[in-house]
Amino acid sequence: MNTVKLYLRSMQMLMKSQLQYPVSFLMQTLAQLVMEGGEFMAVLLIVDRFDHLNQWTPGNLYFFFGMMSVTFYLTEIFGRGITGNFPSLVRTGQLDTLLLRPRGIVTQVLCSAVDPRRVACVAVGVAALILGSRQSAVQWTTGKALAMAEAILFGVLLILGLFLIEAIFCIHSVKSIELVNAITYGGRSACQYPVDIFPRPLRLLFTIAAPFALTLHVPSAYILGKPLYGWPAWTAFVSPAAGGVLFLMLYLLFARAMRYYRSTGS
């Protein structure tokens, strides 16, 4: 529990320090709102031209979009240390300072940054979820709410895990590898649509390598009452764990990579 307390205290302190520059904070939050709002607008405009995409109605698609936005940007708010900060920690040698403290590195990296501006993006995601579930006439049950919470939780872990790949490269090469963005940001853009609209290679990529389909799409489809590939309902509660498994695997790889870390400068 002490680790959780430390994380919460760090977050509180970082929020405080962000608010040291209130105008800048407000402007940037507004900018985020415009950016993510624009993205949703684009989806609205495109989807509006179709009656349906495969079996999915426009309302269904808004729901998928919302799930991805909420999950991805919650990760960016609370996991900013990993999703954004890590390369600069390595490059500037600030990682040394973390190594000098008696706590886990991933814990400390997570404690090192927060990005509250993204709350605007999460808000857009929530709006999309509400609109989507209204238009799809979702009958909410406790089970569905649970499935959704679980999907978001494991989705956050999945995205953190994918960003750890970049961190691992970073430890070895000091510079960050933009290629990894293809599955992190690329994964976000692609998987705001349900996976079954994509050709087979992409479906495999997003089911096995970066299992957005398992963590987000299966439960979303269950909530919408149109099971993905007709899978039984219980899969919606089991398959999201794939995100947790991926995170665990990459966490272990990361810990291994840290052994090869060589610091920079003096």
């Binding site: 002490n2 430390l6 205290r9 320090s17 962000q18 040291q20």
Partner: peptide, 15 residues
């Protein structure tokens, strides 16, 4: 960006 005393109290938790 935080007051020195806040940094200290976080270090207290870390250690």
């Amino acid at each position: 960006d935080v007051p020195v005393i806040d940094s200290f109290s976080l270090l207290k938790d870390i250690y």
